[in-house]
Simulated assay, not measured.
Amino acid sequence: MYSIAQVQTYIVKAWQTIKQLNRRSLLSFTGLFLVGVSLSVAIAACDSTSAAKPDLKLKLVSYSVTKAAHDRIIPKFVEQWQKEHNQNVTFETSYGGSGSQAAAVISGSQEADIVNLALALDINKIAQAGLIEPGWEREAPKSGVVTRSVAAIVTRPGNPKGIKTWADLAKDGVKLIAANPETSGIGMWEFLGMWGSVTQTGGEESQALEFTTKVYKNASVLTKDAREATERFFKQAQGDVLVNYENEVILAERDGQKLPYTIPEVNISIDNPITVVDKNVDKHGTREVAEAFVDFLYSAEAQREFAFLGYRPVNPSVVAEVTKNYPQVKTLFTVQDFGGWDAIQKRFFNKGATFDKIQTQVANKV
Results as ranks from 00 to 15, higher is better:
317 S>K: 14
328 Q>V: 12
195 W>S: 06
13 K>D: 15
2 Y>A: 12
318 V>R: 08
8 Q>K: 13
64 S>I: 04
56 L>F: 02
97 G>A: 01
206 S>V: 12
193 G>R: 04
319 V>M: 13
244 N>L: 06
120 A>H: 06
48 S>D: 11
174 V>Y: 09
77 F>T: 13
199 T>E: 13
208 A>H: 07
184 S>V: 09
5 A>H: 15
340 G>K: 07
173 G>C: 08
252 A>M: 14
103 A>E: 11
80 Q>L: 14
95 Y>I: 07
189 W>F: 13
14 A>W: 07
365 K>G: 11
79 E>Y: 02
221 V>Y: 12
162 G>C: 08
293 F>E: 05
97 G>R: 01
356 D>F: 03
172 D>F: 01
154 V>C: 00
332 L>I: 08
118 A>H: 09
134 P>H: 06
332 L>W: 05
273 P>A: 04
57 K>C: 02
175 K>D: 15
313 P>F: 10
365 K>P: 04
173 G>T: 08
69 A>F: 09
244 N>S: 14
204 E>C: 00
346 K>T: 15
55 D>M: 00
156 R>H: 00
76 K>P: 07
242 L>F: 14
320 A>C: 05
337 D>K: 13
159 N>I: 02
180 N>H: 07
271 D>G: 04
150 V>D: 06
78 V>P: 10
166 W>D: 00
164 K>Q: 13
290 A>I: 01
135 G>C: 09
349 F>S: 04
359 Q>F: 03
152 A>S: 12
311 Y>I: 00
192 L>S: 05
123 I>E: 10
339 G>M: 08
1 M>D: 03
309 L>C: 02
263 I>W: 05
43 I>M: 15
72 R>F: 04
320 A>P: 02
365 K>F: 11
319 V>C: 07
330 K>R: 13
15 W>I: 13
147 T>K: 06
245 Y>F: 15
29 F>Y: 14
300 A>C: 05
322 V>I: 12
353 A>D: 07
212 T>I: 11
337 D>F: 07
22 N>I: 02
22 N>T: 10
240 D>A: 07
252 A>C: 03
183 T>N: 08
39 L>D: 08
88 N>H: 12
362 V>Y: 09
226 A>G: 11
59 K>I: 10
166 W>G: 01
195 W>P: 05
107 S>L: 09
329 V>A: 11
299 S>G: 01
241 V>T: 14
251 L>D: 11
110 Q>N: 09
48 S>I: 11
347 R>L: 01
176 L>T: 08
279 K>H: 09
144 G>C: 01
271 D>F: 03
105 V>L: 05
177 I>K: 04
78 V>E: 15
187 G>I: 02
235 K>Q: 14
315 N>S: 06
